[in-house]
């Protein structure tokens, strides 16, 4: 565990908490893509199957449980409790266009062809693109509430911090995982446009609004 990894994990945790607070406080999930949230739930479940096979540390186990539980809590709030506020019409991204290619890619490019490893690899590929329905929703509506922007910023920062963690681990431990590094780089690149808008607008107290 190094400082980048810890900061990345905490940023990830903060993102999830911000999202739950936004939905709970405003009693609304307007502006949040349920499609992205479904994809994140698929990511956590397929990645953390090793909860039952491998024990790494108490920290690791607890964080995995928090990520899985909170993602299902988010889905419950969006699709059951505050269903009426869900922005159906704008959240029209077809997730099968992400799920299928990621699965095929995981079957083709993986570290070892075992069910757990293929599912882990699938989750890494899917996580890289899981935010696309959310970014698509923001671009369709042309704006995002400030707490939604903070959520997206924390969520994007997490993988960017992991990139620093991987650089650190390569030099400090000789450890590297090319699949995670490439997918993590793509994931971070997808947020760049948003990062730019966040820094130039939201941090200056303006609403995140896309140019018409």
């Amino acid at each position: 565990m190094n400082i980048f990894r810890l900061a990345g994990d905490l940023s990830h945790l903060l993102a999830i908490i911000l999202l739950l607070i936004k939905i709970w406080k405003t009693r609304s999930c307007a502006g949040i893509s349920g499609k992205s949230q479904i994809l994140f739930a698929v990511v956590y479940v397929s990645r953390y199957l090793d909860l039952v096979t491998t024990f790494i540390s108490l920290y690791n186990t607890l964080m995995k449980l928090v990520f899985i539980t909170s993602s299902f809590a988010t889905l419950y709030l969006m699709y059951v409790k505050f269903k009426a506020t869900y922005d159906h019409n704008h959240d029209s991204f077809r997730i099968e266009f992400l799920l299928l290619p990621c699965f095929v890619l995981a079957l083709l490019i993986n570290a070892s062809f075992t069910p757990l490893e293929v599912l882990w690899t699938f989750s890494i590929y899917l996580e890289a693109v899981a935010i696309l329905p959310q970014l698509f929703l923001v671009s369709k509506t042309g704006e995002a509430e400030s707490i939604t922007s903070h959520y997206l910023f924390a969520l994007g920062s997490y993988r960017a911090l992991y990139l620093l963690n991987w650089i650190y681990r390569y030099y400090a431990e000789g450890h590297y995982d090319l699949i995670a590094i490439f997918a993590g780089a793509i994931q971070t690149i997808l947020y760049c446009d948003f990062f730019y808008l966040y820094i130039t607008k939201v941090l200056k107290g303006k609403k995140l609004q896309l140019p018409a």
Binding site: D9, H12, T54, I56, S112, E117
Partner: peptide
Amino acid sequence: NRDQQQHDEL
């Protein structure tokens, strides 16, 4: 052992 890969990250 590549077959029993341990993923220690989240």
